[in-house]
Design a protein around this nucleic acid. Structure first.
Lengths: 218, 218
DNA sequence: ATCTTTGTGGGGCGAATCCCCCATACGCGA
DNA sequence: TCGCGTATGGGGGATTCGCCCCACAAAGAT
């Protein structure tokens, strides 16, 4: 029986080193390559044709979801096992939709990981216990909005108001019209907000606002 | 390490005999009981508390679906692996809904079967390759039709890649450097994305990307 | 063999953003 | 009373954005 050929994809060298150590102890598995990002992963799959790709989901640049989609498109026989820090419903479905054959968190026991690799290498599907509930539970009402934090102390009420409008997508001009103040004043508030939070673009502001629950997406 | 305690449930003695022979070769598994029908299976689980129940789906009297439902109700920690002759979509979903942690056809290789047992004994989910497509074809589209699928069809891979970078807060110039293309090409992709999605600013793009799970806010 | 899609680029232009400078006024606590 | 924070506003300028125009090559579909 030939060994299961593995490709490791994770942007953290430390994580890959840990996985290398882990698979040294498995005589029926060998690591044939590594990639630090989605684009590298696609090239590596094309070059090496691994049996199983261990794919991190969240990576800078091309993330694991997109990389998975493209690998499966070009190489359907390659099994992809999502290995992630996030036990998140959205990621879970996105990865399966992209073509992943398995989903396992990084906190899982090593035995579970090697077991998952054997399963997906045969074309079967492995889902970690904590993720399985997503299949049947549909939507979990886990909307525990934790309000009141550093934001309340760092920003003034007016600044929070301006930040909310910015996060909603309004321009300075539009915000000025709503608040009945000068566009320059809105700009002034925006500057102060960015300075306080050490952010440097509207995109960063909107992500900050979302993370603090100031606005809600969709 | 203690052995995985198995209960065999099948109305055909000959099938159970085959399984007995199979598991004799597995030192980490032992058969603690057998049942020839659903009602017997429920009693056997109550008496023996096996780790994994190998459950035939189609049986005279109480079938495997109903038996699974009742066993999981009274004994949620018992893992149930559906072992069936039918690779049928209807049975597949009904068994999962009833609480089965795995689904494997009888024609599967013995190695796949023992692998599946090890997986479900840990609380994880095993789905045989030929059944996996049901998940992607039926469950996922209906589930995330509200979040994630339109994006896959509307945007090209390159556009999704550019959108991810935009949502991370990069400027066109920075994205161009990463992708090794001209800033004008990035701008071109951005224009196409906005046109396709009917969005008109980077802020709207980032919120869209977040709502579709392309990036994550922490 | 032609058409469409995708990806790649260029030029230009008005608007908006982002980051400095500056100022006035109010309220509140030390 | 003297700061200090908050809110208000102006000027300027480098950069980026958003949206038009245009083109060409490769790959797939029809």
């Amino acid at each position: 029986m030939s060994k299961i050929r593995l490709l490791l994809v994770d942007d953290h060298e430390i994580v890959r080193a840990g996985l290398r150590m882990l698979f040294l102890a498995e005589p029926d598995m060998e690591i044939v390559g590594e990639a630090g990002g989605g684009a590298d992963a696609i090239r590596a799959v094309a070059d090496l044709h691994p049996d199983v790709v261990l794919m991190d989901v969240a990576m800078p640049g091309m993330n694991g979801i997109e990389a998975t989609r493209r690998i499966k498109e070009a190489n359907p026989e390659t099994a992809i096992l999502a290995l992630t820090m996030y036990e998140d419903e959205q990621y879970f479905f996105e990865m399966l939709n992209a073509g992943a054959s398995g989903y396992i968190p990084k906190r899982a026991a090593p035995d579970d990981l090697v077991s998952a690799i054997r399963v997906v290498s045969q074309g079967n599907v492995f889902l970690y216990a904590s993720l399985a509930r997503f299949l049947l539970n549909e939507v979990l009402p886990t909307h525990d909005a934790k309000a009141g934090d550093s934001l309340t102390e760092e920003l003034t009420p007016r600044e929070r108001e301006v930040l909310t409008h910015i996060a909603e997508g309004k321009t300075n001009r539009e915000i000025a019209d709503v608040l009945i103040i000068s566009p320059k004043t809105v700009d002034r508030h925006r500057e102060n907000i960015m300075q306080k939070l050490n952010l440097h673009s509207r995109v960063e502001l909107v992500k900050y606002a979302i993370s603090r629950g100031l606005i809600r997406v969709e």
